[in-house]
Design a protein around this nucleic acid. Structure first.
Length: 256
DNA sequence: ATGGCTTGAGTGTCAAGA
């Protein structure tokens, strides 16, 4: 089973890239973040023609998350249960016995800001919900744009970014608390080249100079982590005309 | 120099992203 995550930064703009990528990679499931549209503007028809069912938790202008899958999706949940939040950042479904949770964590803007406080509260709520969700679904994968670089090796310039948004200790603590639930960072289960990133700033030729961060992640519960055969970042779509600023992250689970 | 691009909303220019 091949599952993936991609922050597309507007699905309307990126649909051709997404369709090309689905055709060449053929994942069983793809989690999307920042669709930036309500359900009315969601491209269900072309995705279905490409062989994918879709579920969407949409919002105008900002946020918006979706899961595309080749198989039927069951027990769909939108938003974090019990957490009052108008922002559409979570959608979950069961696909071939695997609980797939697609999340777009808040950016946080600046350490100490109101948005930063919201980010930390949001991450705590997600963690609380996942603790229960993992009891119900032993085979669980959390995929998405975490907006957290977990370690200095996930940052192109760790000195410049030290203590800054996406790299602060409280955010990294929140990431570790997710791992403490019994989840494993699929990417770090394998040998990776140094300076592997999943996001590069549009400005300053960030991609060409590899001035990036690894903030998009796939976390796997033990039964899935034990069968995880590969995890990589696909930089190819970032090289196209009008790319998303994020690249897809893909993992392969053997025997599913 | 808190800038630099990109998107959406909307038609002038700003918020937000990371």
């Amino acid at each position: 089973m091949k599952i993936a995550t991609w922050n597309v930064n507007s699905l309307k703009v990126r649909l051709p890239h997404v369709l090309d990528w689905l055709a060449s990679v053929r994942p069983d499931a793809l989690c999307l973040q920042e669709t930036k549209t309500e359900d009315g503007g969601f491209p269900f028809a072309p995705l279905e023609a490409a062989g994918y069912c879709a579920i969407h938790n949409g919002q105008k202008t900002y946020n918006g998350v979706a899961i595309l899958a080749r198989a039927e999706m069951q027990d769909v949940v939108r938003d974090i249960p019990g957490f009052d939040d108008p922002q559409k950042r979570v959608i979950a479904a069961t696909i071939d016995g695997v609980r797939v949770i697609c999340a777009y964590m808040p950016n946080g803007q600046a350490v100490g800001s109101d948005k930063y406080e919201y980010k930390l509260k949001w991450l705590a709520a997600l963690t609380g919900w996942l603790r229960e969700e993992m009891q119900r679904y032993p085979q669980l994968a959390l995929l998405g744009d975490f907006n957290i670089a977990p370690d200095d090796r996930d940052v192109h310039d760790p000195v410049a970014w030290q203590g800054q948004i996406l790299c602060s200790e409280a955010e990294r603590d929140a990431f570790r608390k997710l791992l403490d639930l019994g989840l494993a960072d699929a990417f770090r289960r394998f040998e990776q080249t140094e300076k592997s990133f999943s996001w590069w700033d549009y400005r300053m030729m960030g991609f060409r100079r590899n001035l990036g961060l690894r903030i998009d992640h796939i976390l796997l519960s033990s039964p899935l982590a034990n069968r995880c055969a590969a995890c990589s970042i696909d930089k190819a779509p970032r090289k196209l005309e009008r790319p998303s600023d994020h690249a897809p992250v893909v993992t392969e689970i053997a025997g599913l």
